[in-house]
């Protein structure tokens, strides 16, 4: 597994923000909310969640819209949206540097930014990407070069409960059922480390505040 690193409260104007990096891929997520919402988007019983993903070059196109929709569906399941009716929660994600893990870095950054902003969530969530080489080895958190060589790539988002249930699953390429199960198991194992990392980051944040 590659090196995970995170910095919370990165931006001064957002309610919560996180700079997250896995290996050489880095993304910056910022959360604003719950705040006021346009009349057209107002929902009587829950909050309206909006995700905005900006690539590092060019205008947002179809690929960015696809990522936005995946992230939004994942996040909606985790946030307690019914606690804040008639409001909006805005999540903005900026791709800083890409080395193949754009989706998992963005999802993890979004989770930590939500925690930093203090938005109530049912569960935390973590994304793990893995790929299968032509020899059958499973690599967790591969680099861009490794993904190019691989036969298939899969991303799973797990929830923070003990059993690591799957919230979202994405897969690209040829995968037999056996290989898929192996990937899922290995990613589940790896997700425990990621949740431990989240816990460590949040503890560090509040430890500083208790000391001062």
């Amino acid at each position: 597994m590659a090196q995970h690193a995170c910095d919370l409260t990165f931006l001064s104007r957002s309610d919560g923000s996180a700079l997250y990096s896995i290996g050489l891929t880095a993304a910056l997520a910022s959360v604003n909310g719950p705040g006021d919402v346009k009349v057209s988007n107002r929902l009587y019983n829950r909050s309206h969640v909006e995700v905005c993903y900006s690539p590092s070059t060019g205008h947002p196109m179809i690929r960015e819209r696809a990522l936005e929709s995946i992230i939004m569906r994942t996040v909606e399941k985790a946030i307690l949206v019914h606690l804040h009716p008639r409001t909006a929660i805005n999540i903005s994600i900026q791709e800083m540097q890409s080395d193949g893990l754009a989706l998992s870095v963005s999802v993890n950054a979004a989770c930590l930014a939500l925690l930093d902003a203090g938005i109530q969530m049912k569960t935390t969530f973590a994304a793990i990407t893995c790929c299968i080489t032509p020899f059958g080895t499973i690599l967790i958190d591969p680099t861009e070069a490794e993904i190019q060589e691989s036969v298939a790539e899969a991303t799973f988002v797990f929830d923070g409960s003990g059993e690591a249930k799957v919230l979202t699953a994405l897969q690209d390429g040829h995968l037999s059922y056996e290989d898929f199960k192996r990937c899922l198991q290995q990613c589940q194992e790896a997700s425990k480390d990621v949740f431990a990392f989240y816990r460590g980051t949040i503890e560090k944040k509040y430890q500083n505040e208790i000391e001062s």
Binding site: A5, D7, L8, T9, F10, L11, L19, S21
Partner: peptide, 13 residues
């Protein structure tokens, strides 16, 4: 080069 890494960029806080 590592580029934008958490230890290279300084947060606002």
């Amino acid at each position: 080069p590592r580029g934008y890494e958490v230890k290279n960029l300084r947060s606002d806080t």
